[in-house]
Each structure stands twice: as structure tokens, then as C-alpha cells.
Measured scan of single mutants.
Amino acid sequence: SIEEEIKKAEEAKEKGKTFIHGDFVATTEELLDELLKRLRKKL
């Protein structure tokens, strides 16, 4: 679910890890923020 993806992305951000969502690879905090923004729009 979208909620689960958001939670996983937030955890990755806290730990400074890379998060992959489909073909979107978030390797930096900026990219994770962008991904979180996109996911929240889908809610």
C-alpha cells in the first residue's frame, strides 16, 4: 500500500539508506523527500 511505502521511505531516510520504489531510486535525502511528496499525493 502507499502508506507502507511512505513508512519504508521515511525509515530509509532516517537511516541514510537508499530506497527503491519501482524505477525510482532515492539515494539522497532530496530524492527521498521528492518520492515522499509523490507518494503522499497519491493518498
Score class of each variant (00 low, 15 high):
27 T>K: 08
14 E>Y: 05
16 G>F: 06
28 T>P: 02
36 L>E: 04
12 A>E: 03
17 K>L: 15
25 V>P: 04
14 E>R: 14
18 T>I: 15
32 L>R: 00
23 D>G: 05
6 I>S: 04
22 G>T: 03
34 E>V: 01
40 R>Q: 09
39 L>I: 07
17 K>T: 12
31 L>T: 06
4 E>Y: 04
33 D>M: 05
10 E>L: 13
9 A>M: 06
14 E>T: 12
25 V>H: 10
21 H>F: 13
26 A>G: 06
17 K>N: 14
40 R>P: 01
24 F>L: 07
10 E>K: 07
43 L>F: 02
27 T>Q: 06
40 R>D: 08
17 K>S: 09
28 T>V: 08
12 A>N: 02
6 I>K: 03
5 E>Q: 14
23 D>Q: 06
25 V>Y: 11
14 E>D: 08
27 T>E: 13
38 R>W: 13
20 I>Y: 09
35 L>R: 01
22 G>L: 11
24 F>H: 06
10 E>M: 13
9 A>E: 02
14 E>H: 10
29 E>G: 12
38 R>F: 13
9 A>I: 13
21 H>L: 09
25 V>K: 05
5 E>S: 13
18 T>R: 11
3 E>R: 09
19 F>D: 14
40 R>I: 12
9 A>G: 03
17 K>G: 15
19 F>H: 15
42 K>A: 14
35 L>Y: 06
39 L>Q: 00
38 R>A: 14
23 D>M: 04
29 E>Y: 01
40 R>Y: 13
34 E>Y: 06
23 D>S: 08
7 K>C: 11
22 G>V: 08
35 L>V: 04
23 D>A: 06
36 L>N: 02
2 I>A: 05
5 E>L: 15
11 E>M: 07
24 F>C: 14
25 V>C: 15
9 A>N: 02
42 K>F: 09
8 K>S: 06
8 K>L: 11
23 D>R: 00
23 D>F: 09
41 K>A: 14
29 E>D: 10
5 E>A: 15
6 I>M: 05
3 E>S: 09
43 L>I: 08
13 K>C: 15
16 G>E: 10
8 K>Q: 10
15 K>A: 12
9 A>F: 04
4 E>H: 09
22 G>S: 04
3 E>N: 08
6 I>Q: 03
24 F>I: 09
30 E>K: 11
38 R>V: 12
11 E>S: 07
11 E>I: 08
34 E>P: 01
6 I>T: 01
19 F>G: 15
19 F>E: 13
9 A>W: 03
31 L>V: 05
13 K>M: 08
35 L>C: 05
37 K>F: 00
9 A>Y: 01
30 E>A: 12
41 K>D: 13
43 L>H: 05
14 E>A: 15
10 E>N: 07
27 T>I: 09
26 A>L: 08
41 K>E: 14
25 V>R: 01
22 G>M: 10
42 K>C: 12
36 L>D: 04
35 L>E: 03
13 K>E: 03
24 F>K: 00
39 L>Y: 00
31 L>G: 05
40 R>C: 12
40 R>V: 11
14 E>C: 15
10 E>Y: 05
19 F>N: 14
16 G>P: 00
9 A>V: 14
39 L>P: 00
20 I>P: 14
28 T>Y: 07
20 I>C: 15
4 E>L: 09
21 H>G: 06
4 E>T: 07
31 L>M: 14
11 E>H: 06
35 L>Q: 02
12 A>R: 03
31 L>Q: 15
28 T>L: 12
12 A>W: 02
42 K>D: 13
38 R>G: 08
15 K>T: 12
34 E>L: 09
29 E>F: 09
15 K>H: 11
7 K>F: 06
30 E>D: 10
37 K>I: 10
6 I>P: 01
14 E>N: 10
26 A>T: 04
32 L>F: 14
3 E>T: 08
20 I>V: 12
36 L>W: 03
42 K>L: 15
38 R>Q: 14
34 E>K: 03
5 E>F: 14
26 A>P: 03
17 K>Y: 13
32 L>M: 02
11 E>G: 03
30 E>L: 08
7 K>V: 06
19 F>T: 14
7 K>M: 09
37 K>C: 13
40 R>A: 08
23 D>L: 05
30 E>C: 08
23 D>P: 00
18 T>K: 12
32 L>G: 00
35 L>W: 05
38 R>T: 10
34 E>Q: 04
35 L>I: 12
7 K>H: 09
13 K>R: 12
9 A>D: 02
1 S>R: 10
29 E>C: 14
2 I>H: 03
36 L>Q: 01
21 H>A: 06
8 K>Y: 05
37 K>M: 06
37 K>L: 09
6 I>A: 02
33 D>T: 03
13 K>P: 01
42 K>E: 14
43 L>C: 04
21 H>R: 01
5 E>N: 08
20 I>D: 11
8 K>W: 07
13 K>I: 04
20 I>F: 05
16 G>M: 01
31 L>N: 06
1 S>E: 10
12 A>V: 00
5 E>H: 07
39 L>M: 08
7 K>Q: 11
20 I>K: 03
15 K>I: 05
41 K>N: 12
15 K>Q: 12
28 T>A: 07
16 G>W: 06
21 H>D: 13
16 G>K: 13
1 S>F: 11
16 G>N: 11
3 E>V: 11
16 G>Q: 04
3 E>Q: 10
6 I>G: 02
20 I>A: 07
14 E>G: 10
10 E>H: 05
35 L>N: 02
18 T>V: 13
33 D>R: 06
30 E>T: 08
30 E>F: 08
35 L>F: 05
21 H>E: 13
23 D>K: 01
4 E>W: 05
39 L>K: 00
18 T>C: 15
30 E>H: 09
27 T>R: 02
1 S>N: 10
43 L>E: 02
26 A>Y: 14
39 L>E: 01
3 E>A: 11
33 D>I: 07
11 E>C: 15
10 E>P: 02
17 K>C: 15
42 K>P: 01
2 I>L: 13
11 E>F: 03
15 K>E: 08
